[in-house]
Design a protein around this nucleic acid. Structure first.
Lengths: 288, 288
DNA sequence: CAGCGAATGGAATGTCTGCCTCATTTTTTG
DNA sequence: CAAAAAATGAGGCAGACATTCCATTCGCTG
């Protein structure tokens, strides 16, 4: 047996960063095909982690046997051991963000003091942003923006918890010189305001469970007038969804009984600025 | 052949979250061994992603064939397709938090379409949350909460961009049955409202550059009446800071000319709920 | 340009994979 | 409690897998 040599001085990189450094270090001295794989491996680490030797070799444009030689040259005893390093990287990377969030949440739930409360809200907001970033339907977004961009006046409809979002939308639309009307309950003239809306206009309606009855009623009325509605709500069973031309499902995390608004805010701003861009793009002009 | 049934109505979950929801949904109705695997899968998703059918079955304490039946019951055509979902999850979540943010921001700046705009706002919000989580001064938070908890009425003062935050604070304070007064400009009676404030009350004032002159003026007036002020603003040179008893410096990231509100929102909620807790803790009661 | 060692391609190999089948056990139903 | 249905266990099979081996090509050096 002459395995001694292997165990003697060859230090096998066990973590991805070391491996990466090793590869970059030897880059010059590697044979052509091996270098080809090295480049491919650092560029597409996920493929190495999940692919088979054959599939990786094919997408790197080499023979499977070369891939194995590459692994062996780095001190591994085969492709499989090399792959372990790439897989370990994904395992560890993955946990970092979630762990951070979990830690925050744990601190929020376990810990005392007001810092804990603050952490709870930060965690809820982060979670919500994370979720919406994954689940947002791009087609819905495009459709909603087109719809709103065509509107003469954009009516913004929201009560209670959702009202802050509506007021920010109204503020942003105003800054972008897009004609809009915020429907607030203060003056008690909602019915009259809604009466002005025509099918040439559009509505952004926001409501979450428990749905403010006034919002639902007003959405119903306005939809019966043939005005298209973009709804932001929390489930496809929401009463808002049935009146809506396009609707978004936003799941906000909550803390201490108050749901985050961060995901809804991000979506609201994307809609607003999206409409602004679209109008500028088509040369359409609006005065405040 | 009776495969028709499968292709007909069974909707196969393609992303991890949907899959997770589906499993949790059917949890009750699953056979014992299948449930055993379901639990193991949700607890050790990484193992499912990387292991072989045999190794996973062993560590879940079942037969490999059961694992395959589990996958089929969910609508997949075999273990391999189920595994794809677990692998996709790792691919998408793969990068560390910072890298993910960078990627989002790059996509937002480079990319076209409205998804890019959305990503930009999500990135801005995440960055802001990240920043405030690092920089928030805990002592300031404690001091602000004590100050507000002692107030008879909490006045909330903000205009324009900061107004949504103020309206959410007012909403939350209301739900917590804490007496508060939102100072909005609509009725034009701000001066009179402010006149009611006494040193036994307190103010939450929010303003960011460019500072709304009305907010500054009102803050000045109210501080001259001896009312303590908690300010949320963006720099210690802010005109708001000089009137404030306690102030928070919040740096919000911006995108497309609109700053995020997420960090301010999180702080605002922490203050609000903090006050609520403190009052309940000291047995102090308030009526709406 | 001949000679030689390293590098490479491609097929062969034995192992292990996922998945199917069928016998057995458990649960449900009448 | 019997019969039927569902769930489970275990062995077997075809195919895919990583790896090895050997013939061929490439890139030196003299």
């Amino acid at each position: 047996m002459s395995l001694d040599r292997v165990t003697m001085d060859e230090r096998v990189p066990r973590d991805f960063e070391t491996l990466r450094a090793t590869i970059l270090d030897r880059r010059e001295s590697l044979p052509k095909r091996i270098a080809q794989i090295a480049a491919h491996a650092l560029d597409n680490p996920d493929d190495i982690a999940f692919g088979t030797a054959a599939s990786i070799a094919a997408s790197a444009g080499v023979q499977p046997s070369t891939l194995i030689r590459f692994a062996q040259q780095l001190g591994f005893d085969g492709f499989t051991s090399l792959q372990q390093v790439f897989r370990e990287r994904l395992r560890e990377r993955n946990s970092s963000y979630d762990e951070r969030l979990l830690a925050l949440r744990a601190k929020a739930e376990g810990g005392a003091g007001h810092r804990a409360i603050f952490d709870g809200f930060v965690a809820a907001a982060s979670t919500s942003l994370n979720d919406i970033s994954r689940t947002l339907d791009e087609a819905h977004l495009e459709k909603a923006v087109s719809l709103l961009a065509k509107a003469e006046t954009i009516f913004v409809l929201a009560k209670r918890r959702s009202y802050p979002v509506a007021s920010y939308i109204a503020y942003a639309l105003g800054k972008l010189k897009i004609r809009n009307q915020l429907i607030e309950s203060a003056a008690g003239l909602n019915a009259e305001m809604i009466g002005f809306a025509t099918p040439a206009d559009a509505v952004i309606a926001i409501s979450f469970s428990p749905y403010a009855p006034a919002t639902i009623e007003e959405a119903r009325t306005i939809s019966e007038q043939g005005v298209p509605i973009v709804a932001i709500t929390d489930s496809s069973f929401s009463p808002l969804a049935q009146f809506a031309t396009v609707w978004f499902e936003v799941a906000e995390a909550d803390f201490a009984g108050f749901r985050s608004l961060s995901a809804t805010m991000a979506l609201a701003m994307a809609l607003t600025v999206g409409v602004g861009e679209k109008r500028r793009g088509t040369g359409r002009k609006r005065k405040a």
